[in-house]
Design a protein around this nucleic acid. Structure first.
Length: 203
DNA sequence: GAGTATCT
DNA sequence: CTCG
């Protein structure tokens, strides 16, 4: 299985259970301050199946009226996003090989029925910075395509502790989550999967 | 029928 | 619109 150039799968990068638990705990703190909410798609207003929140100076949001964008405030509470946990800044330093720090950490929570259709991450102004994706909890089937929606795709499984780097030539590749495999991890007591994506937004 | 929907 |  050959991934597009610039997309790297680092299986088991977070190989210690306590490391993953600490990350989950940090995310619980974020969620306590910036609650998960259900985003809706532009135009249709249709609800997405994932729930999301953010931490860091900027957060990715979407709504029916204004569409996909980054903003400094939580769309429901109106508060600024909580600070980025230090572990995430460290992971960025260790893996991203990018001079500027991440500005947004999008927290996506997938219940066992949630999915994410094929899409590109192209709402960032800085497309040179990679996107760092961290998987926690139940496994999922991840799908990666090319620069055009109809390009052929390949699929592989992501497990808790895996990291995917989407950068370079692969930065604008279509990707998505086809399904969650229930009960494949004991990290999250109530099941489901958390995906954290670290992004640089401004140049 | 579903999806970060269809084009930038 | 494109895919599964």
């Amino acid at each position: 299985m050959l991934l597009p150039s610039g997309i790297r799968h680092l299986p088991g990068y977070l190989d210690r259970r306590p490391t993953q638990e600490a990350l989950v705990e940090a995310i619980r703190t974020v969620v306590a301050e910036a609650p998960l909410y259900t985003p809706v798609m532009p135009g249709t207003g249709k609800e997405m199946s994932v729930r999301m929140t953010n931490c860091g100076p900027l957060g990715w949001v979407t709504d029916k009226q204004r569409g996909y964008r980054y903003q400094q405030t939580h769309p429901v509470t109106g508060n600024h996003w909580p600070a980025m946990p230090p572990q995430l800044l460290d992971l960025w330093s260790d893996i991203a090989a990018y001079e500027k720090p991440p500005e947004a950490c999008l927290v996506n929570f997938y219940n066992d029925d949630a999915r994410m259709g094929l899409h590109q991450d192209r709402d960032e102004q800085d497309l040179y910075a990679p996107v760092l994706s961290i998987s926690l909890g139940n496994s999922c089937l991840f799908r990666v395509g090319g620069l055009n929606r109809r390009d052929p795709t390949l699929s592989f499984k992501l497990s808790s502790g895996d990291i995917v780097v989407i950068g370079g030539e692969g930065r604008l590749c279509f990707h998505g989550v086809d399904r969650i495999y229930p009960a494949t991890s004991t990290l999250l007591r109530n099941g489901g999967r958390i995906n954290l994506t670290l992004r640089r937004v401004t140049p």
